[in-house]
Amino acid sequence: MSVGLDRHDDGIVVLTLDDPERRNAMTVDMGDALRDATAELRDDAGLRAVVLTGTPPAFSAGGDLDMLEDLARRTREEGYDATGHMRAFYGRFLSVRDLPVPVVAAINGHAVGAGLCVALACDLRIVAEDAKVGLNFSRLGLHPGMGGSWLLARILGHQRAAEWLYTGRLVRGAEAAAQGLALEAVPAGDVLPRALALAGEIAAASPVTVRQLKRTLATTADADLDTALAREAACQAVSYGTDDLREGLAAGRERRTPDFPGR
């Protein structure tokens, strides 16, 4: 299996890209395994947060060169149109966006090309200080894929994303975090513990509210204020009927930490 799935008692699941000999390259098999893992988790009512990481030494070194070379050969020699193939390929890995809870990318090593795109598809990112990260597609002669151009512009802003994409340069994790790609940069050995701590904070919040927020942030990112207000009002209307709100208010009055039931 090329994606490990480790369940924790607090509703946190760690997914691990696990093909260290190829530095967790983005292969079809890896994509199938990730899609299957997310499908298994999607309907898990007890799920509260997910951490996505890679088996050291890399998070993911990017696309599978054998696949890229085969597609290039078929296109040149056979006139093959790879559009459908690539769209299906993206979907395997971007299935992490379908999870109903926040996903924290623990970028514990190099994350390059499509490998970084998968991390960009997560909600939050912690990166190793010395990891090399970047979208190097232009240096391969390949247009970015896996949502890279769309995701990066929304995370870094248009001008900074354009510089990354046009040059294809790789930067250290510390610089990437300073530019806003990740919440913070820490030593490589601290990446997973820090990501798990963050996931623990998320898991301690109201599961109903966090799941609502996941959807809100996805649907209102490019919406106008009236649309955002309508979404917030509808979500609060749901909140008023939940046991989570009852527990949260009681905990506030009693000055204790809430224990949310998730309903």
Rank of each mutant, 00 (worst) to 15 (best):
H85K: 05
G11T: 09
L198H: 02
T38D: 12
A105M: 03
A233D: 04
V28E: 14
R246H: 04
N24T: 04
V101Q: 10
N136L: 01
S60K: 03
V103Q: 08
L52F: 03
Q236H: 08
R48F: 05
R97K: 12
T220D: 08
R194W: 05
R169K: 00
M146K: 02
H110C: 01
R97I: 07
H8S: 15
T55E: 12
V208E: 13
P56I: 09
P261W: 08
A119C: 06
V133W: 02
A197K: 05
P20F: 10
G168L: 03
R231T: 12
A82D: 08
P20K: 11
A72W: 06
A176M: 05
R125W: 00
L17F: 06
G200Q: 12
G241Q: 06
A114N: 11
D32G: 09
E254K: 07
A228S: 07
L170H: 00
G54C: 07
A33V: 07
D44H: 13
D6V: 13
R48I: 10
A177W: 05
F89V: 12
M26V: 07
G148R: 00
T53S: 04
A49C: 06
V127A: 02
A49Q: 05
M26E: 05
H8D: 14
R23P: 00
E78Q: 14
D43A: 15
E163K: 00
G248A: 14
H85P: 00
C117Q: 00
G200E: 11
L151G: 06
G62W: 02
L225F: 14
A178Y: 04
V51C: 00
R87C: 05
D64W: 11
D66L: 09
D243R: 15
A188Y: 08
P258L: 11
L245A: 14
A221L: 12
L120T: 06
G134F: 01
R253V: 14
V118K: 04
K214E: 05
C117S: 14
D98Q: 14
A37H: 08
A49S: 10
T209A: 15
L15Q: 04
R73V: 12
F137R: 00
L170T: 00
V51M: 00
A178F: 01
A153L: 07
T55Q: 11
E129C: 04
R256S: 15
L15G: 07
R35L: 13
P102G: 09
K132Q: 04
D44I: 13
L124S: 09
F59T: 06
A199W: 04
T242P: 12
S149C: 02
V103P: 09
V210F: 13
E69F: 01
V112W: 01
E184I: 10
L249W: 11
L151D: 08
L156V: 12
G115C: 02
G248W: 11
D19R: 15
S206D: 10
G31D: 05
I126H: 01
A82V: 06
D81R: 08
A174K: 07
R246W: 03
V118L: 15
R160K: 12
A121D: 06
E201Q: 15
G79E: 01
V104G: 03
G168A: 04
D43R: 14
G62Y: 03
T53Y: 02
R215T: 13
R263E: 13
A197W: 02
T75D: 03
L170M: 01
E21I: 11
D18F: 08
L245M: 08
D224I: 09
E247F: 13
A162R: 11
L151V: 05
S149W: 02
R172G: 03
D130W: 07
T227S: 11
